[in-house]
Simulated assay, not measured.
Amino acid sequence: MQVSLRRLVLASLVVVSALAGTAVEAKKSVDETATVAVSALPPEAQQTHRLIRNGGPFPYGKDGSVFGNRERVLPRRARGYYREYTVPTPGARNRGARRIVCGGGQPTQPEACYYSDDHYASFKLIAQ
């Protein structure tokens, strides 16, 4: 009986540790030191960045829509602060995984823009 109790405690610790690791991972935020210059972005991202600053026209209907930041990778802000834009992926038959997400009061003058090439799993701050 004592051996079974030890196994149960050990198994519980393993589960708690695994859940704690998941919780920490889910709350990761953008690494503010991970920046990318506009000139270092892929050409399609540079073009999307120009379109954002000029107010369009955008090639995809979802461009300029509110980005909810459900993954909580970007800094927390009020709903409506972030907007997302598609960065075309050559050869992709859909919108692909590349995005620019910008935040601020005016869409054409964002306070900060972030580039993701892995569909919001990670972001790099675009140096202005």
Rank of each mutant, 00 (worst) to 15 (best):
D118P: 00
S65I: 02
P59D: 09
A78H: 03
G56L: 13
K28S: 04
G61T: 07
Q109C: 00
I100M: 12
V16E: 04
R50Q: 15
R83D: 04
Y115S: 01
K27D: 12
T48C: 00
V14S: 09
V38R: 11
D117C: 02
T86P: 01
C113I: 04
Q46G: 02
F58E: 00
L5F: 09
G56W: 14
A40L: 03
G96T: 13
V101Y: 09
G68E: 15
E25G: 01
P57T: 12
S65N: 06
V9F: 15
I100H: 10
D31Y: 04
K124N: 06
L41D: 02
E111L: 10
C113A: 02
V24A: 10
Y114A: 04
I52G: 00
G105W: 05
Q128H: 10
A18N: 00
V38H: 04
C102S: 04
T22E: 06
V15E: 00
G91A: 07
G80D: 05
N94I: 03
P43M: 05
F67V: 04
Y82G: 07
L125R: 13
A92P: 08
A45L: 08
I126C: 04
S17G: 14
K124T: 07
S116M: 05
Q47D: 11
A92D: 15
Y115G: 01
R70Y: 03
R53N: 01
E71Y: 13
K124A: 12
T86G: 01
C102R: 07
D117A: 15
R7A: 14
L19Y: 09
I52Y: 04
S4E: 08
R98S: 15
A18E: 00
N69R: 04
A23N: 00
A45W: 07
G21W: 14
R76T: 09
H119P: 03
T89Q: 09
G61V: 08
R53G: 01
H49R: 12
S116Q: 04
A18L: 08
R7S: 08
M1N: 06
G61A: 15
L41I: 08
R7Y: 11
E32T: 02
Y82D: 07
I52T: 02
A92Q: 15
E25M: 08
K28H: 07
N94Y: 07
F67I: 06
C102G: 03
G91K: 10
G21T: 09
T48Q: 04
Q47E: 15
S65E: 12
H49Y: 15
S116L: 06
V87I: 02
